[in-house]
Write a protein that binds this DNA or RNA. Structure first.
Length: 832
DNA sequence: ATAGGGTTAG
């Protein structure tokens, strides 16, 4: 754990500048246009070729690819006989600017006698850098057959080619073994770097990558930065920061723009504001403020650390504001709750200025701000904008749209977009698979454009699809994605596995979630553990959740704040009061995690559910900050369960003080009155809401059958099988009444006669969905129902009886948790 | 001559 008051030994660092300054653009341009390539004698020719070679190298190093191509053109026109030196540089040029077919044709037209080890290394690197791993390895073998023995540069290229899932565990490990045996492992810093990336990119194997890093004889600032960055990117921000501090203390390397970008991201992730501030001052002192990457990381860091004002200040002072800068700030506002309007304002400002064109990430960010907007209009406008710009099918944007629609209860829209994404990715994955087979079968593996940049589905694509499936609760689609994951070799990827755990959990299949978790073996991070703990907690298996939490502590994984929300909610769902207090105290004292509003809300929930209402109030009053609406809403829920109108009214008042336009508070209060039969008060609230134009969120349930989502509202008759569903409901009603079910009309919130109330009860969307599931799915299969609000108490009781009379297992996911109902018992122990 | 590290997202 990084101490928050730590002062960095940054002042000890002195900047080492590159000793040989590169030629700038105009110097290069002049030199190339003045270059006279006509020549009359051999001596002359040699000299010109050397000059060209130096210029070419300089262009490549400074990324002036256009000038380099101009020079190539002049060389071709001069008809001078180019030597290996120049030809090799040209291969590198086209490799680096992504025009690999040119590189290949230069290599192919070279005389075999002219091809030296460098030429082979360059073309292998070219394939490896342009996503043609298989061709790179074939060429490597070809080179060996031609009698060349690889050196460290050549190995570096070959190792890079092993950096994907297919090759990492086979060829990659073989190459690694060979390097260790021959002593090549230590031959060059770059070999180590390539190996680190092979393990990281090939299967998220940070342990092996770190082992390589530790065992390297020689390291430099690039090596350290690489390792720091990979820790950070794979979700180990804490280790990234630790490693960075070690670099400062143990070495004399100076963090540069690359190092700072990564460490700042890690600070953002861990909300280390004070370290972030120290880094900020280092950025200013070392003159890196003009680097747009570093500045964006600063904007992001301040926003994630909850200091949006500083974020804004950095942004306002940025000399060079591009899409990235705008997006970083917009996203910053969208993430911090309460700044959604500011995010939207900023987005509009950016559009009005018109200098900067939004990209996919910009839309991802601003769409996030729309999730909780009461008015759907702006989000819909953004949606149509993304369609116009062709972004709606892009994974991140699509996922944000799915998220926005799903969270605001518009399941139909969410599902439509999810299907577009799903179909698109299936096609993409199939195409790539086919193309790879084609390469494997083809005699001349070279030649035609098969693998091009960036089309393949990657780990993020899968994670995105899985989280979409989790949101909507379509386990069928989720399983299909899982099959693809395995087929395409992403089965060992950390990110993907974490997404799988949460998908199975959120879709109600905790066994499958556990299976994925168990199969991960040692490659798990705090997110994997938190996901599985949260899964069990939400399903009401608190003992299992807490067991897993203890196991996690034992093997030395540091829990984070989210882990504790899962742990506390596990205790809360089964009423483990002492256990909860133990963890609540331990999180601060043993792990240095300061409890947030959510943690306090968990404790209030726990106390309130157990009927300790006055303790709960006392607890709320002892909080170090003012309780927000979430805490009071939680408390109000308990008041209703324990029928304490007095405290309930007080809680509702507190909510409405904080969020006067929250329809949920009005509804909860009206439910409270209704359960006591105070119909006049109910009517008064309804009238008040009507005047304020507050709309209550309509309750509905849905279920996936044969890959199709069926959604039901209260009293729904729109389904094509409505008649059959209601017949089934009637039958169920009489069956469960015979076995002891008594309708609980407290849950009907209309002032009507008892018999009529019962009628209303049997029109609840949960019951309709269950009836539909019973007539449309085969017997042993568990039924999985989803509801946007909390499940109603009468439905809960009725479904328990239904599970007995039908012998089916019924899983209900409501807004709060899971109910596994089997043989008349529910995993929540009727405590929710 | 051939080699290696960065940003904003879900």
């Amino acid at each position: 754990m990084v101490s928050r008051s730590l002062s960095l030994p940054l002042s000890n660092c002195r900047s080492h500048q590159n000793p040989t300054p590169n030629l700038n653009f105009s110097q290069l341009q002049n030199a190339i246009s003045n270059l006279d390539l006509t020549s009359n004698n051999q001596q002359h020719t040699r000299h010109k070729l050397i000059t060209s070679s130096i210029l070419l190298k300089s262009c490549i190093r400074s990324h002036n690819f256009q000038l380099a191509k101009l020079l190539h053109l002049k060389l071709t026109e001069s008809r001078l006989p180019l030597d290996s030196l120049l030809l090799n540089s040209l291969i590198t040029l086209y490799s680096k600017c992504g025009e690999w077919p040119h590189a290949l044709s230069i290599f192919q037209t070279m005389d075999n006698a002219k091809k030296d080890l460098v030429s082979w290394s360059a073309i292998i690197a070219c394939f490896a850098n342009n996503n043609m791993d298989f061709k790179a390895l074939l060429t490597f073998l070809d080179m060996l057959q031609n009698g060349f023995y690889p050196n460290e540069y050549c190995f570096t290229a070959a190792i890079r080619a092993c950096s994907n899932a297919q090759f990492c565990f086979t060829t990659g490990r073989a190459v690694f073994g060979f390097l260790l045996k021959t002593g090549y492992f230590d031959s060059h810093v770059c070999v180590g770097c390539a190996l680190i990336d092979m393990f990281v990119k090939g299967g998220g194997d940070l342990d092996s990558a770190y082992m390589v890093f530790e065992k390297m004889r020689e390291r430099n600032v690039v090596t350290w930065t690489l390792m720091i960055t990979r820790f950070m990117q794979l979700g180990f921000a804490g280790d990234a920061v630790d490693l960075f501090l070690r670099m400062l203390v143990m070495t004399e390397y100076v963090p540069d723009r690359f190092t700072l970008t990564s460490v700042l991201s890690a600070c953002a992730e861990m909300e280390l504001l004070s370290l972030g501030k120290q880094l900020h001052s280092w950025v200013i002192r070392s003159g890196l403020s003009s680097d747009v990457f570093v500045e964006c990381s600063l904007v992001d860091m301040y926003a994630k650390c909850g200091s949006v004002e500083n974020s804004r200040k950095v942004f306002d002072r940025m000399p060079d504001r591009n899409v990235m800068s705008w997006t970083a700030l917009i996203t910053g506002y969208a993430q911090g709750s309460g700044h959604e309007q500011e995010a939207i304002k900023l987005f509009c400002e950016m559009m009005l200025q018109g200098h900067v064109v939004p990209n996919c990430l910009t839309f991802s960010g601003v769409l996030k701000a729309c999730v909780n907007l009461p008015d759907f209009g702006f989000g819909e406008q953004l949606h149509s904008q993304t369609i116009k710009l062709g972004f709606h099918g892009v994974n991140h944007v699509g996922n944000s749209l799915v998220n926005m629609y799903a969270r605001s209860g518009r399941m139909d829209c969410a599902r439509k977009i999810f299907d577009i994404l799903f179909k698109k990715n299936l096609i993409l994955i199939d195409t790539v698979a086919e193309e790879n087979t084609e390469i494997l079968n083809s005699e001349e593996a070279f030649g035609h454009e098969i693998e091009h940049n960036g089309t393949g589905a990657n780990a993020f694509t899968y994670a995105c699809l899985l989280s979409g499936a989790a949101c909507i609760g379509t386990i069928g689609k989720g399983e299909q994605v899982h099959a693809r994951v395995v087929k395409s070799g992403f089965g060992t990827n950390l990110l993907v596995n974490n997404a799988l755990i949460s998908m199975y959990s959120k879709c109600g299949n905790k066994e499958a979630a556990l299976q994925v978790f168990n199969d991960m073996g040692g490659v798990r991070n705090v997110i994997s553990w938190t996901s599985i703990i949260n899964g069990f907690a939400k399903h009401g298996f608190a003992t299992k959740a807490l067991e897993l939490f203890n196991e996690m502590l034992e093997i030395g994984i540091k829990p984070n704040d989210v882990t504790y929300i899962a742990v506390l909610s596990a205790c809360s769902h089964v009423g483990l009061i002492d256990e909860a207090w133990k963890h609540f105290n331990s999180m601060r004292f043993n792990h240095g995690i300061v409890p947030r509003m959510e943690h306090y809300a968990c404790m209030v929930d726990l106390l309130g559910r157990s009927g300790l209402l006055s303790e709960a109030i006392e607890f709320i009053n002892s909080m170090p900050f003012d309780a927000d609406a979430l805490v009071w809403r939680t408390f109000l829920g308990s008041c209703r369960v324990h029928r304490n109108t007095e405290l309930g009214e007080y809680a509702a008042k507190m909510i409405l003080e904080r969020e006067p336009h929250d329809p949920a508070a009005h509804i909860l209060l009206s439910n409270l009155y209704a359960s006591e039969g105070r119909w006049d008060d109910v009517a008064a609230i309804r009238k008040n809401m009507k005047q304020r134009k507050l709309v209550k969120e309509a309750g509905y349930s849905w279920i996936e059958v044969d890959n199709k989502v069926h959604k039901f509202h209260v009293g729904d008759t729109l389904h094509p099988q409505a008649q059959k569903i209601y017949n089934e409901l009637d039958e169920l009603a009489s069956k469960i009444k015979k076995s002891g079910y008594v309708p609980n009309t407290d849950f009907v919130l209309h002032d009507v006669e008892d018999e009529q109330k019962e009628q209303y009860l049997f029109q609840h969307s949960e019951k309709i969905a269950v009836a539909f599931a019973l007539i449309s799915t085969p017997n042993p299969k568990p039924i999985r129902i989803f509801k946007n609000l909390r499940v109603c108490g009468d439905c809960h009781s009725a479904i328990k009886y239904i599970s007995v009379v039908t012998g089916r297992e019924i899983v209900v996911r409501d807004a709060n948790r899971f109910h596994h109902i089997k043989d008349g018992k529910c995993s929540c122990n009727d405590y929710w």
